[in-house]
């Protein structure tokens, strides 16, 4: 059986809110070491990869590997019944046809229990090879979100150009064009606002901006986001979840025919 108590229940709410526009149904794979999820969007352009290690939970128990087939919209609805400060406990027995969710506020004067039906999801899994990225950008997650939204007002596509001077986001549409350039920050100041660029070679790629806007809904999970690019491979957009996991998105590029 699975019994996983998440002291910071809000983390689960944020994760599910961040992926709900991309993925409708997903398998949550539970093992002794934690919970993982891998799912593609229906158009097979974007992939979500979640890792929540057992350290995120206290306690965490999973005797045998369990796959929980979850309708994300249903989970969003049930999680709306929890408070932001609630401790959330997930419980499932074998065979996993239901998932129990228990919400407890810090006061412990209220316990709410919900049970959601699970589904059989025929999920194809992709092997994501280890990639030596040519350009890795770490920047404030809020800045990334703002830039993506701003670029979306002009075009469906955004071009990201990483050089040693900085990273430039640009969009060109029927109404006009625009760009935002972030310069590489100093090495002394390493606050969340600092933009750092690790470059093997200058890299430019173009992506559908609507996916990036969706990914950036993860902003509340982490102060910083990491963008990793190697042309012509998919870009990695990563949000760390404290020291106990990550939410990664892979996005296939757009290319000139």
């Amino acid at each position: 059986m699975l019994e996983a108590r998440l002291p910071q229940g809000a983390v689960l709410k944020k994760i599910v809110d961040a992926i709900k526009e991309i993925v409708s149904d997903a398998n949550f794979d539970c093992t002794d070491s934690g919970i993982t999820l891998q799912a593609m969007d229906s158009s097979h352009v974007a992939l979500v990869s979640l890792l929540l290690t057992s350290e995120a939970f206290d306690p965490y128990r999973c005797d045998r590997n369990l796959t929980l087939g979850i309708n994300i919209k249903t989970l969003v609805q049930i999680l709306k019944c929890s408070g932001n400060d609630d401790v959330i406990t997930l419980r499932a027995e074998e065979p996993a046809d239901t998932l129990a969710l228990v919400f407890e506020p810090p006061s412990l004067e209220r316990i709410s229990e919900y049970e959601m039906k699970l589904m059989d999801i025929d999920n194809e899994r992709l092997e994501i090879p280890d990639t030596a990225y040519h350009a890795e950008i770490t920047m404030a997650a809020s800045e990334f979100q703002r830039i993506c939204r701003d670029m979306q007002t002009l075009s469906e596509s955004v071009t990201i150009e990483a050089t040693k001077e900085g990273v430039k986001f640009s969009a060109e549409g029927e109404l006009g064009s625009g760009s935002v350039t972030l310069k590489q920050g100093g090495s002394i100041d390493s606050s969340a606002e600092t933009t750092t660029i690790e470059l093997v070679q200058p890299t430019t790629q173009t992506f559908s901006v609507k996916y990036l806007v969706n990914f950036s809904k993860s902003t509340s999970l982490a102060g910083q986001v990491r963008l990793a690019m190697t042309a012509p491979l998919p870009m990695l957009v990563e949000y760390k979840i404290s020291d106990c996991g990550h939410l990664r998105f892979f996005l296939a590029p757009k290319i000139d025919d």
């Binding site: 097979h44 352009v45 992709l126 998919p234 590029p253």
Partner: peptide, 14 residues
Amino acid sequence: VVLQCLLRGFFQNV
């Protein structure tokens, strides 16, 4: 013409 690539062109099925 700008074409949207699919993930399957880069990642293999397990």
